[in-house]
Design a binder for these strands. Structure first.
Length: 428
RNA sequence: AGAGGAGUGGCAGAGUGGUCGAAUGCACUGGUCUUGAAAACCAGCGUACCGCGAGGUACCGGGGGUUCGAAUCCCUCCUCCUCUGCCA
């Protein structure tokens, strides 16, 4: 969530920046935050004064009892009755104001970075670069990945349907091996680039969901285990970033750089349709995530470095790719700037999103109470960033489609040692 | 899962109804002494909110309650430890 002080200091710039997201009533919302905050302050002051009075009275009463002045003590007690009532009322009012303020702040998304293009849909995203002007053309007999994975017995959706339901594929044979190879390759690359590997829990509590911003806004996107009130993670961002919730980091410990492999679970309520076949959209998928906690002045340079890391990965897999800067309308709620990576899936003739790299600035840090002590000894909110490096299923889809040959599927060279084979072939 | 015990400042650890935001030790910061260092000594040393400031308020795992007054009593939740049970 945004800091009230930031809203106070940059009111007009914010309204201008928010226009890129195309949200209505933003000025109203910001004004009401400031109003609520002022009300909160004066209620606080009033309450503090009342409490001061009753604290003093209580001390006097104690003193009077000690001196054996029962009557005077009892007299003083009478006075506290009305004070108590008043402060109880005020306390409740203050709590309500604080709740309203927090919920108002929770409803306001992050402020888009100046470079974010205005726009409503993914059509308005800004193309930063494309790896090739010549998209691969396959012959007419080229098959989409959902056919290929059957031909080569790589993934069984029917089995997944049986044991769980739609969107939970069962990887088999060289398909399962490919998943494992990609996870190991991505983790190795991240580790080599200086990201310390962690293995977090893949179910988290509500506080963690709130910390990174999945809750309360996107409740419907996560699987909720109601009997223990826990959530299956939609991305490793949740547990990994929350590792640092409620902490004050030493300046010397920044940047914090982590990578993690986790399965990810998404309900994808309402986003299903005939256009999502095969691996294009799943309820459970595998992903390696990179996360950083940095000093504010470094966060955009770090964002570029993370983009470069992801680009290196995609390039090494020999897939055609492009990088987009998301427009205001497509930008995630908590993000200030996001770059998406898409790879070209040649049989579907479609670009598929395989990575999203974002700078959240202090938006998550404010919810997380994630701060560091700067050189002056002041506690400052850190900036958080994360990126997929990478999400597996669509990478697999593109690899399988783009590299199909007469009697097999060629695998990129970088995976050879991880796979133990160079070509996916039919079982004899 | 059942029974019992415990959660206090960076750490250790006092404190069981008022003078406790909290003893003491360690750590840390500044100073004195010293050629330098150590030791010793002196001083400082939690967080958040409000206030120009003086200062005020809140916080002893979280939430609620009793009381004029709660770290201290009660309820509830969470976490940890011990024993019993179960189980990769």
């Amino acid at each position: 969530m945004l800091q009230v002080s930031a809203i106070e200091d940059h009111f007009d710039e914010m309204i201008l920046a928010f226009s890129k997201r195309g949200i209505k009533n933003i000025e109203e919302q910001l004004r009401s935050v400031l109003q609520l905050n002022n009300k909160r302050k004066s209620a606080q002051q009033e309450l503090d004064a009342l409490l001061q009075e009753s604290n003093q009275l209580a001390k006097q009463i104690g003193q009077l009892y000690k001196e054996g002045k029962q009557d005077e003590a009892n007299e003083a007690k009478e006075q506290t009755i009305s004070l108590k009532e008043k402060s109880k009322e005020l306390g409740e009012a203050l709590n309500k104001l604080e709740e309203e303020l927090t919920s108002a702040l929770y409803n306001i998304p992050n402020v888009p970075h100046p470079s974010v293009p205005a726009g409503q849909t993914d059509e308005d995203n800004e193309l930063i670069m494309t790896s090739t002007d010549q998209l691969p053309e396959l012959g007419d007999d080229a098959k989409p990945h959902w056919d290929l994975i059957q031909d080569y017995d790589l993934i069984d959706f029917e089995l997944g349907n049986k044991i769980t339901g739609a969107g939970f594929p069962v990887y088999k044979n060289q398909g399962a091996r490919l998943v494992r190879a990609l996870i190991n390759y991505f983790l190795d690359e991240a580790t080599n680039a200086g990201f310390a590997e962690v293995r977090p829990p893949i179910v988290t509590n509500e506080a963690s969901g709130r910390g990174t911003g999945q809750l309360p806004d996107k409740e419907g996107q996560m699987y909720h285990i109601t009997d223990t009130d826990l959530y299956l993670i939609p991305t490793a961002e949740v547990p990994v970033t929350n590792l640092y919730r409620d902490t004050i980091q030493a300046e010397a410990d920044l940047p914090i750089r982590n990578c993690a492999y986790t399965p990810c679970f998404r309900r994808e309520a309402g986003s299903w349709g005939s256009h999502v076949r095969g691996l294009n959209r799943l309820h459970q998928f595998d992903k390696v995530e990179i996360v950083q906690v940095v000093k504010p002045e470094n966060s955009y340079q770090v964002l570029d470095e993370m983009v470069a890391h992801v680009e290196k990965l995609v390039k090494s897999l020999e897939l055609p790719y492009r990088i987009l800067r998301l427009c205001g309308g497509d930008l995630g709620f908590t993000s200030a700037l996001t770059y998406d990576f898409e790879v070209y899936s040649a049989a579907q003739k479609k670009w598929l999103e395989v990575s999203s790299v974002s700078n959240f600035e202090a938006y998550q840090a404010n919810r997380l109470k994630l701060r560091y002590k700067n050189a002056d000894g002041k506690k400052v909110l850190a900036h958080t960033l994360n990126g997929s490096a990478l999400a597996l299923p669509r990478i697999m889809a593109a690899l399988v489609e783009n590299n199909q040959i007469a009697n097999g599927i060629k695998m990129p060279k970088v995976l050879k040692d991880y796979l133990g084979f160079e070509v996916i072939s039919k079982k004899l």
